[in-house]
Design a protein around this nucleic acid. Sequence first.
DNA 1: TAGATTGTTAATCGATTAACAATC
DNA 2: TAGATTGTTAATCGATTAACAATC
Lengths: 264, 264
Amino acid sequence: MATGRTHRPATRSRGIPEATVARLPLYLRALTALSERSVPTVSSEELATAAGVNSAKLRKDFSYLGSYGTRGVGYDVEYLVYQISRELGLTQDWPVVIVGIGNLGAALANYGGFASRGFRVAALIDADPAMAGKPVAGLPVRHTDELESIITDNDVSIGVIATPAGAAQQVCDRLVAAGVTSILNFAPTVLSVPEGVDVRKVDLSIELQILAFHEQRKAGEETTSAQEPAAAVQPRSGAAVRTPAAGRAAGKGPDGDVPAVMPA
Amino acid sequence: MATGRTHRPATRSRGIPEATVARLPLYLRALTALSERSVPTVSSEELATAAGVNSAKLRKDFSYLGSYGTRGVGYDVEYLVYQISRELGLTQDWPVVIVGIGNLGAALANYGGFASRGFRVAALIDADPAMAGKPVAGLPVRHTDELESIITDNDVSIGVIATPAGAAQQVCDRLVAAGVTSILNFAPTVLSVPEGVDVRKVDLSIELQILAFHEQRKAGEETTSAQEPAAAVQPRSGAAVRTPAAGRAAGKGPDGDVPAVMPA
DNA sequence: TAGATTGTTAATCGATTAACAATC
DNA sequence: TAGATTGTTAATCGATTAACAATC
């Protein structure tokens, strides 16, 4: 029972660091914009600024791909677009399925950024029989019953899960059993997948919580950190210390946003 | 002209590492699930499994918060829920605005995970006059003209941008000018913000591209990496090397998904 | 007490960055 | 050639992990 990992330990084969892989799409996007403006070459400094990183990092990243620049000149935009696309595997077509066609699933289906990068939405799948046949983003929604045949018939290896949290693991299991080996998970749950299956997760709530942390620090600085936790006080006791705030934060409300935890 | 950074250099004040901060919401979610099942205590091993990390990392993370566990026993679930909530700033209310009420914006507005964690959707804002007044997730959509007054009146410090890429920077500028200091950006653009403003970004396409990279490697391994880039060959030349694939990958299509790049 | 589990140490690993020699 | 800019080195920094003493 392998626990869902967000990314692989490290990319051993020919060894491009994971951090570098995660930035390649940023470079690609900036380069694509330059390409559309017919800019022929770009320096590491310019491209780094456009991508929001510093130039040393960019050059180091590119050094893992090969020597694609020209000293004294910079990088050929079109050539680099191709090299990065190839490295990312975007020069081939990736059929994907989206499971769970609620608000988010529909948003994903309509998202234009997929098609232009080699991702083709092979099917939209939902468990609600009332949804079946309804067109979303120009595609008829298919029922979950067809999941396995859709995967097989279209050689789908990438699945997107946009279901409620409660259904995510089950959907994941079916996707994996049918042959999917990469999963992008929008459900707020930790997915368990077998070895060899990659899971990446996007969690809207987590991102906001991280922002809230920093926001709180900012507010604290203004007032010279008056309500600092006071780490020295050590408010330990033993039994359950429950406060009104804890009750709220525990989210007893109708959330439906809780992973199916299974402690050993 | 500060380039948009995804996260701060490091959290100096009282020094909780950024990597730890990013995991606190995972722990909180797992703990909330345990709390709902009325589990009184949990060991680092159990909680780590539920959160999808290893126990050494979890204990190290918690050590930055203080000594909240009991040796030989584990952690009190309710107490830890409260401590982490407080550390993340979730024991207070954070009014947020969502700008751009398309598919994605509507999905975010309907997302249940916000309210239960101290985030309150203060307003939904869209530039389309036809949307104004329409109810989405129980709230009437407000027009962009009202953006500044909404921010001020509701003391909003966190903004969510779900507009098309082309509008994102402008919306960002207005949010910041009106007093927002944390931004969650769903538009596929690098945002420029002044010092002191935090930007986190969620990019659906980037996540898929990272998956494609690993997926390609998997496929390559099966066939003993027959189509490996051949780093030794160095296919350098100088002028624009354009291939059919590069043209496609450059995304000349009707994408609308390109950041407004501004090279120095 | 004996068993269990935390909190911390220290070693290791990976990522970032500045600086500069190589070279177009 | 002189100027510009890459590709790489080496130092630094931050994150992860295993191991275990402290202690409930």
